[in-house]
């Protein structure tokens, strides 16, 4: 219980955000209407993804400093889980875009750069498969991971703000947070964000433990 409280907290927070998000009142805005509820589901995915990639970079740095294989496992499983959340974020975004923009994938800088940053992390996984030797694999992929992270930040959070974009919060469009979210929505939104971040970390730790077990089993054979 002492170690698991945050997992229960994650479940509780996500449940609260789903129930309050689907049933609670939202401001009536033109075009958006009820789709503003997507902010409870779409945005937290990206927060969770960013947290997981951040964890991955931190453990890559730790791996380079110590050479401990466990850190490498944490880094790779964080990326794996991050890619899952990135996919969910793209899906929920496309669902929303289909209704408000009339097109699931308009040619928009924010969308394209999120797809490109996914390519970067897929390249990280391909790079891992290309190297057989375990220590070399850990080291080289950690180096690429650290190298890619600041570029991902530029891609997702700086470039779309410089150009015209349909996406809220970019290219002169206001954030939902500034204008449209009223005082009821805000706490639900933050609950959802923290809940999904904890949930993502939980999935990551489970995947890490499975990988650790598999590794031990193949060593004992």
């Amino acid at each position: 219980m002492r170690k698991n409280w945050w997992k229960i907290l994650a479940i509780v927070m996500i449940s609260i955000s789903i129930i309050a998000g689907l049933l609670g009142p939202v401001p009536e805005l033109p075009i958006l209407n009820e789709t503003i509820r997507n902010v409870y589901f779409h945005v937290p995915m990206w927060f969770a993804m960013l947290l997981l990639y951040l964890i991955s970079v931190i453990y890559s740095i730790k791996y380079l400093n110590t050479g401990n294989t466990r850190y490498d496992f944490i880094a790779v499983e964080a990326v794996n889980t991050g890619i899952l959340f990135c996919g969910l974020g793209l899906l929920t975004g496309m669902l929303w875009g289909n209704i408000t923009w009339g097109d699931p994938w308009p040619n928009d800088p924010k969308l394209n750069s999120s797809a490109i940053s996914t390519l970067m992390y897929l390249a990280y996984l391909v790079l891992r498969n290309a190297i057989d030797e375990e220590q070399k694999r850990g080291k080289i992929s950690a180096i690429y991971n650290i190298f890619a992270f600041p570029i991902m930040i530029v891609l997702l959070y700086i470039l779309p703000r410089m150009t015209d974009s349909l996406h809220p919060g970019n290219g002169g469009n206001s954030n939902f947070g500034d204008l449209d979210m009223d005082n009821y929505m805000r706490p639900v939104f933050y609950t959802a964000v923290i809940g999904w971040m904890l949930f993502g970390t939980w999935i990551g730790t489970i995947r890490y433990r499975i990988r650790l077990l598999e590794n031990n089993m193949s060593l004992n054979k």
């Binding site: 390519l119 970067m120 790079l127 290309a130 190297i131 070399k136 080289i140 180096i143 530029v154 891609l155």
Partner: peptide, 22 residues
């Protein structure tokens, strides 16, 4: 990085394209 990863030309392209796009 790709020189250390062995078979260079395809790895080079995979690794560098996403990084160079921004």
């Amino acid at each position: 990085i790709s020189a250390k990863a062995g078979n260079s030309s395809s790895i080079m392209a995979i690794l560098s394209f996403p990084v160079i796009i921004p």
